[in-house]
């Protein structure tokens, strides 16, 4: 009896320790995130004003100026990356989900997995080797190419899962209406999988928007309005990097402002991804 009671007590204690330990770690993780977000907001809020959002960077020593060219450059590069990654990613996902079988499909899946683990700086170096060196100048396009490679594994995985999630019955229904198989896939299966694919795309964009390492030797940076992706382009992430390591207080403040913008963009993308999913849950 006494031994039993003692055992029960020790179980209660170890249970309590477990709850406290996991609770503490969860609070630590959530707290760190809130701390970072809060610090960025406090530091960056003051830097954000109309001029910051609409003007070009000012030369060293002239206070004020903005990161407008960096915002536009980031948008252009991400859009180009999307144009490259979406078709390849979705079609690869389609292949893996429906047509791919056996060793070939396994190899593709494995390579995509490996690709998602390759450091972004190595991918940047690759883009540099094939799109910068031969042309002898940096370009937004080479940055978009590096971003596309970074987005690809995520696009492939989410597309495959999204398309796999569409019931076979829907595909058979299209087939039974006298549609060639690819017709059913294009008209019926892909639209059914679209919400999940869009979610994956938004997360992939959020993943690359803050990437800086591959930009160092691809987009390189620019002090001017540059809308032609064939030329070196400014990006928000690069401007943060440059301003943060500078010795000027004004630039430090602008670096915080840029960081806040980036975090807000990623936050919006994540909320958007959730929203796309919620619409899907409501319909089915």
């Amino acid at each position: 009896m006494i031994a039993g009671a003692r055992l029960a007590a020790s179980r209660r204690v170890s249970g309590l320790v477990g709850v406290i330990l996991t609770g503490f770690c969860s609070a630590l993780a959530a707290g760190l995130l809130i701390l970072i977000l809060g610090y960025v907001v406090v530091q960056g809020w003051g830097a954000i004003n109309p001029a910051f959002l609409t003007q070009l960077p000012h030369p060293v020593g002239v206070s004020g100026g903005g990161v407008a060219n960096g915002i536009v450059g980031t948008l252009i590069i991400v859009a180009l990356a999307m144009l490259m990654a979406v078709p390849v990613g979705v079609l690869t996902g389609l292949y893996l989900a429906i047509y791919g079988r056996g060793l070939t499909a396994e190899c593709v899946r494995f390579l995509a997995e490996v690709l998602s683990g390759v450091p972004s700086i190595a991918i940047g170096l690759f883009a540099y080797t094939i799109l910068v060196q031969p042309f002898r100048h940096f370009s937004g396009l080479s940055a978009a190419f590096a971003f596309a490679i970074l987005m690809l594994p995520l696009m492939i995985r989410t597309s495959e899962e999204a398309i796999r999630g569409v019931p076979t019955a829907i595909r058979e229904g299209a087939l039974a209406l006298g549609l060639p198989d690819y017709g059913g896939v294009i008209h019926v299966v892909l639209p059914a999988a679209r919400p999940l694919i869009v979610t994956g795309l938004l997360l992939a964009i959020a993943r690359v928007t803050g990437e800086t390492a591959p930009l160092l030797f691809t987009a390189f940076g620019s002090e001017f309005w540059e809308l032609n992706p064939g030329n070196p382009m400014a990006t928000l992430a690069m401007q943060i990097f440059k301003y943060a390591i500078s010795p000027y207080d004004d630039w430090h403040r602008q670096a915080w402002g840029g960081a806040l913008l980036l975090i807000l963009a990623v936050l919006v993308l994540n909320v958007g991804a959730r929203w796309a999913l919620r619409g899907r849950a409501k319909r089915s």
């Binding site: 019931p167 019955a169 829907i170 059914a192």
Partner: peptide
């Protein structure tokens, strides 16, 4: 298959409007 239609165990409407679901076969 246009001459031999099939109704499945689980209803499998396409993810589109009621009208388009029915118009789909003739259209394609």
């Amino acid at each position: 298959r246009r001459r031999v239609g099939m109704v499945f165990q689980r209803p499998n409407p396409f993810p589109m409007s009621i009208y388009d679901n029915v118009a789909y076969g003739p259209r394609v």
